[in-house]
């Protein structure tokens, strides 16, 4: 059996990064938390798309599943090619780069895919929010407020976001309906 294993890979859990070990086998991707021993297993058939994202000094793996959920792992130090080859060989998936927007703008477009809200600036994603992190969503005039579940494991925890929505857009009722 062919496999890849990485230590000190962090997994995003409600806005904080928990470190653990990531193991890729022929059939599944398994992440085990160092602290709690919690295991996340994703079978390769569940993956709809796999991307890598470049960060400062390391890169991250982004998995979007067929059920609409998003999984993210960070802390890969080596060349992404090794991982990409593994995905291609065993999962028949092309792992492409998903570049992040570094522009620093607060305006863009909000797109929904599965359970994921993504804020895109010029076709590049600036950030993504899983709807499961949202505790409450309110709609006002030209405004959407998202409140998030709090996580005291994170050094700083995101509480609330407000968006200004132009009047012409009707698709923005989606987040409210998602609850």
């Amino acid at each position: 059996m062919d496999f890849l294993e990485f230590s000190s890979i962090s997994s995003e859990q409600r806005g904080s990064m928990a470190t653990g070990r990531l193991k890729l086998t022929n059939e599944a991707i398994i992440w085990k938390s160092d602290k709690t021993g919690k295991v996340d297993e994703i079978s390769s058939g569940e993956i709809e798309c796999a991307n890598y994202q470049r960060f400062v000094g390391h890169f991250g793996l982004r998995l979007f599943l067929k059920n609409g959920t998003l999984h993210r792992f960070q802390g890969f130090k080596e060349d992404e090619k090794k991982l990409a080859d593994f995905f291609k060989k065993h999962y028949k998936l092309e792992m492409l780069e998903k570049e992040l927007s570094m522009r620093g703008w607060n305006w863009g477009n909000v797109n929904f895919k599965g359970d994921v809200l993504s804020f895109d600036i010029n076709d590049k994603t600036a950030f993504e929010v899983s709807i499961s992190n949202v505790s409450q969503c309110n709609q006002g005039k030209n405004e959407i407020t998202l409140e998030f579940h709090q996580n005291d494991d994170a050094p700083v925890s995101l509480m609330e976001m407000r968006y200004h929505i132009p009047t012409t857009e009707s698709s923005e009722t989606d987040p409210v309906e998602n609850f």
Partner: peptide, 26 residues
């Protein structure tokens, strides 16, 4: 580009108390 969606506001929360072993509070 007034037709775009704007992020209006963002709020962060952090604990004031130190955990044992932490140099400063979060």
């Amino acid at each position: 580009n007034p037709d775009a969606t704007f992020l209006k506001e963002i709020t962060y929360r952090s604990i004031n108390t130190k955990e044992p072993g932490e140099i400063s509070a979060p």
